[in-house]
Write a protein that binds this DNA or RNA. Structure first.
Lengths: 311, 311
DNA sequence: CGATTAATGCTCAATATGAGTATATGCGGG
DNA sequence: CCCGCATATACTCATATTGAGCATTAATCG
């Protein structure tokens, strides 16, 4: 071990901090929405996790309920500049509730679909997909000479974005972003160009690879809500079943069958009635529920299995 | 960012390299089975992944088919000594075939159940579980005064190890190891004591937290084979369905229903016949199959869903 | 030849899942 | 006070998935 080399390394913690408010999935950003909050890992921190927890709680004044490691990156050219300094970035997914939290400094919550407009299928397939994104990906595929290569490109795109009769798979967030990056449609693919805030059909850009990290976080979360009761970290203490459903739908970017959703949640005993009712949303008053924390103890592998099928 | 502090960090890559040979799951070790192979991450490496790939291939003379990041650790007391040097360890799961691979130096493959004897349920529940481990965990739970605490302890143990009518869940490898660690039954929990190689009922110990990392790798792999066709990375180019089944069983530590296993594998079109037959194992000759690589392209989320139920 | 070991083909019951119908209960406006 | 409107909540039903057996076929071994 060449100590001299090993020392030229720095570690950075990056958080994908998620909340769901007003039916929209939000992510905490800094720098006018261009970056995810991140801070250095220092010797004073007990562990990576606690290092992250420390400064995120300091920023949001909110205890983090749930933290999960996402991925560790250390690509040579991450920094962008020619510094010989090597940076290892350790990213985390954290869930919280927006509520109080007078966010310090210029930190701000953003709708995550600002960054990935093609990911929200709650109101049906976004028209930009078949109308604009599809054709461009097709052109990108056709742009190579090699027929086989061309076919492969289009097939990858079709599977990822659900063209050609392929079913939409909401968990392929990262795959889709990487495809758009490879095709150079997202701004990050050509560094140093258009610096405007424009929210194009390919979404708002972010600094360095932060948008990729966000995509990783969304991917993980969309997968996780199907087999772990993590949604509740995003819910207020009591809620109606429809509110819970809307939260899941916001994250998954698709609607679910209401009756089946209730059946599932109830038969799995994930929640219990509080006795109270609410008549806020207009229709017949709904029972208020709370998460039954018992499930965490009872079922180690506490399955949720939200089917999240098409609606 | 206090540069002075950030520089005092080193990064290390650790591999859980797995193969399945002769019906047993093996893991590559060094230091007489006491450690997982690991090496420093250096400035010369293009990325973390390629750094790992570089030296693992150098050690095993075998191209790695599959690499997946496991987890990144940086706990203060990891080093054990009082050095102020902070080490970040990035662990990976890698799959390969044992075959050729004249393993360099003192590297050696070990049956992973040497480290976790209680994890192999292929021949039924290991007698040590109800006979010895259970009672000791019960005693550990009873050792606290607080009744509620005591109850919680036992309940955690019962769920993790399948006592009190709880079903055995093969994916709780890490949870079980951590419980045994907490109860101080595994050697690593009391550093600096018995240094012998003895394979006690609590398994062979490893250096530092390598056994925990191995547990993390097994956990991940046991989960993954259920929804991704990764088993094939461990199989020879052609194989019979029973061989495939035995491989899955070795990893999962439990047997599966033969007919249902075949039904699943075939209806998902994960394999295709080669035309050849083999009459090696005794009974009626079996068809030889090969993995149908097409599935990787066709299904992005190439589901495997090996049920892995009780048999 | 008969026992042994697998391979392979089929059946069946119990759930899980996707989708739809019907009824209940609040509110606001006319 | 009655009429929609919007949502809550209760059931029903067809189909797919799963877990478990039973039966038959085809080689090898002694």
């Amino acid at each position: 071990m060449k100590a001299g080399q090993r020392h030229a390394i720095a570690a950075e913690l990056i958080a994908v901090l998620v909340a769901v408010t007003a039916g929209q999935p939000r992510v905490m950003t800094i720098m006018n929405g261009k970056a995810l909050p991140s801070g250095p890992f220092e010797l004073g921190h007990r562990s990576l996790q606690s290092g992250l927890r420390d400064w995120v709680e300091q920023q949001t004044r909110h205890p983090l309920g749930y933290i999960e490691q996402l991925y560790t990156f250390a690509d040579r050219d991450r920094a962008g500049d020619a510094s010989e300094q090597r940076v290892i970035s350790i990213s985390y997914l954290a869930l919280t509730r927006e509520e109080q939290a007078g966010p310090a400094n210029k930190a701000a919550w953003r709708n995550w679909y600002d960054y990935f407009p093609w990911e929200d299928h709650r109101a049906g397939v976004p028209s930009a997909l078949p109308d604009a994104i599809g054709p461009r990906l097709k052109a990108w595929a056709d742009a190579v000479d090699d027929r086989a290569m061309s076919h492969t490109r289009w097939q990858r795109a079709a599977i990822a974005f659900g063209f050609d009769n392929h079913a939409w798979n909401e968990e392929l967030v990262l795959q889709r972003y990487e495809l758009l990056y490879e095709a150079r449609f997202v701004e990050e693919a050509h560094r140093g160009q258009s610096e405007d805030d424009a929210r194009s059909m390919f979404g708002r850009a972010m600094q360095a690879d932060h948008r990729r990290i966000l995509a990783t976080g969304i991917t993980r979360l969309r997968a996780k809500i199907k087999y772990r009761p993590v949604v509740f970290e995003l819910m207020p203490p009591t809620f109606t079943l429809l509110q819970l459903q809307r939260c899941v739908e916001a994250l998954a970017g698709r609607v679910v069958h209401k009756q089946n959703f209730r059946r599932l949640v109830e038969q799995q005993e994930l929640v219990e009635v509080t006795g109270a009712m609410t008549a806020d949303t207009g229709g017949r008053p709904a029972k208020l529920f709370r998460f039954r924390y018992g499930v965490l103890a009872e079922r180690a592998a506490a399955a949720t299995k939200l089917p999240l099928s098409l609606a």
